[in-house]
Simulated scan of single mutants.
Amino acid sequence: MNITVLGCGRWGTFHAWYAHRIGHNVTLWGRPGSPHLAELISQRQNEYLHMPLDIALTADLTAALAGADIVIISISAQQLRSLAKQIRATRLTHMPFVLCMKGLETGSGKRLSTIMKEELGEDARTVVWVGPGHVQDFLSGMPNCMVMASDNKERTRRIADIFSSPLIRFYYGTDLLGTEIGAAAKNVYGIAAGMLDGFHYSSLKGALMARGTHELSRLVAAMGGSAMTVYGLSHLGDYEATLFSQHSNNRRFGEDFILQKPFNKLAEGVYTCEALMDLSAQWQVELPITQAIYDILFQHKDPAEELRTLFLRSQKEE
Rank of each mutant, 00 (worst) to 15 (best):
I3D: 05
V5M: 05
V5F: 05
L6G: 02
G7E: 03
C8I: 03
R10I: 11
W11D: 01
T13H: 02
A16E: 06
A16C: 06
A16K: 06
A16T: 06
N25R: 14
L28W: 08
G30S: 07
P32I: 06
G33K: 14
G33F: 09
P35R: 04
H36C: 11
E39V: 01
L40N: 03
S42K: 14
S42G: 03
N46F: 01
Y48R: 08
H50I: 14
L53Q: 14
I55T: 04
A56M: 10
A56K: 14
T58A: 10
T58N: 11
T58I: 08
D60I: 00
L61Q: 11
A63C: 08
A63I: 00
L65T: 02
G67W: 10
A77I: 08
Q78L: 10
S82P: 00
L83M: 12
L83R: 12
A84M: 15
I87S: 11
I87G: 08
I87C: 13
F97I: 04
L99R: 05
L99H: 08
M101D: 02
M101W: 02
K102R: 12
G107M: 05
G109M: 10
K110P: 00
R111A: 12
I115K: 04
M116W: 14
E119C: 14
A124K: 07
T126N: 03
V127T: 06
V130S: 13
G133F: 03
S140P: 00
P143Q: 02
P143E: 03
N144E: 12
C145Y: 13
V147A: 08
V147E: 14
A149S: 15
A149W: 09
I159C: 02
A160I: 05
D161Q: 14
S164K: 13
L167N: 07
F170P: 10
F170G: 05
Y172T: 05
Y172S: 12
L177G: 08
L177W: 09
E180Y: 11
E180P: 12
G182D: 06
A183E: 04
A184Y: 06
Y189A: 01
G190R: 08
M195H: 09
D197S: 13
S203G: 13
G206E: 10
L208G: 09
M209Q: 11
A210S: 15
H214A: 14
E215R: 04
E215L: 04
E215D: 08
G224I: 06
A227S: 15
V230E: 12
L236N: 00
G237P: 12
D238H: 07
A241Q: 13
L243V: 00
L243W: 04
S245M: 01
S248Y: 03
S248I: 01
N250G: 02
G254Y: 07
F257M: 03
L259A: 14
Q260S: 13
P262G: 07
K265F: 12
G269V: 01
Y271N: 15
L276V: 03
M277P: 03
D278T: 14
A281W: 01
Q282N: 09
Q282C: 10
W283R: 13
Q284A: 13
L287H: 07
P288S: 01
Q291P: 00
I293T: 05
Y294N: 05
I296S: 07
I296D: 07
F298A: 01
K301C: 11
L307C: 11
T309V: 00
L310G: 07
L312V: 00
Q315A: 08
E317D: 13
